[in-house]
Design a protein around this nucleic acid. Sequence first.
DNA 1: AAGTCGGGGCT
DNA 2: AGCCCAGACTT
Length: 369
Amino acid sequence: MTADNSPLARLSPDLSQSLLDWFAAHARDLPWRKTTNPYAIWVSEIMLQQTQVVMVIPYYHRWLDRFPNVGSLAMAPLDDVLKLWEGLGYYSRARNFHKASQIIVEELQGKIPETYKELLKLPGIGAYTAGAICSIAFNQDIPLVDANVKRVFARILDMDKPVEQSASLREIREAAQSLIPPGQAGAFNQGLMELGALVCTTKNPHCLECPANGHCLAKKRQTVDSRPVLAPRKKTRALEVSAGVLVRDGRILVQKRLPKGLMAGLWEFPGGKLDPEESPEQALVREFAEELEIDIVCGKKIAVIQHAYTRFRVRLHTFWSTMKNPGQKPVLHAAEEIRWVLPEELDGLAFPSADRRLIQKIVEEGIPA
DNA sequence: AAGTCGGGGCT
DNA sequence: AGCCCAGACTT
């Protein structure tokens, strides 16, 4: 616990009120701030995990339009759910949300839990999201800690240890809890995050405009630029990958990825990583043989697509291809399902962003004669 | 405690 | 090319 004689404890009522006033004056007009509907708040919080506000807004509207409540989400096929999530990343969020909605319908009489503890049991809801739903939708005096809140308190408290350490997180959580003005956790918690997003930013923070600048130990000690202390990140690796657009009778072969792991449940064009000393064309032939037990002829190059993931970057070599023996039947090893589709059907399936860019090329070029 | 899981925008 | 973001889950 924060000691009663700490600077934070003495200044807390003042700090809390300053933040509430600042938030009332400066809050952005975001779609999820027009509602306290717990389902809508839940949608926004899942989408906002590790994802910036501007990216989320169009997805948020489309989602509520298509899945306006827990029941409609629970009823929907996973393919539809992933299609709506396409391009937003971290697809397990969509899978977990879908599963959670089905648990609510099947085991909780369709009612979203209203306690922190019960919310935490649902897949995809962790400490942050449970706190967000409790405080914003149900106005319970429960704190939340996201990357903004970590940064704000790392500076106010001038924390010199990495914020990701469990001791640091505990300290931040306790500070956030102690500052909640009773009955106003929703506004206070959102105010903290908004402060981190607009004023107490990672780079070039606007300390002169900050409602907490009189309480900020890092500002006083001129350590703002070195807070928060972050653990070093791993370097990104480069990967070479081939993918084939296999055509037979005017249709294209696509496969659905397995239900676990990277981009689970999304559709893709078959292919895989190049082995050392292997050409993209050789890799493609090998991958079709290994993954689908099909012998293919690698045809004309379509494009080389560069795509950056968080921890690696890919050069994706893409080729038209045909079957050596059209009578061969694919045997699935690395996919849950395969489908032969018309080019115009590709739009209805959920693909990773890199494959989406390939589809653009396919549609532009058309299937070669 | 550390690794995994996307994507886009910014520097 | 690296950094960052309204984190959760697995190992």
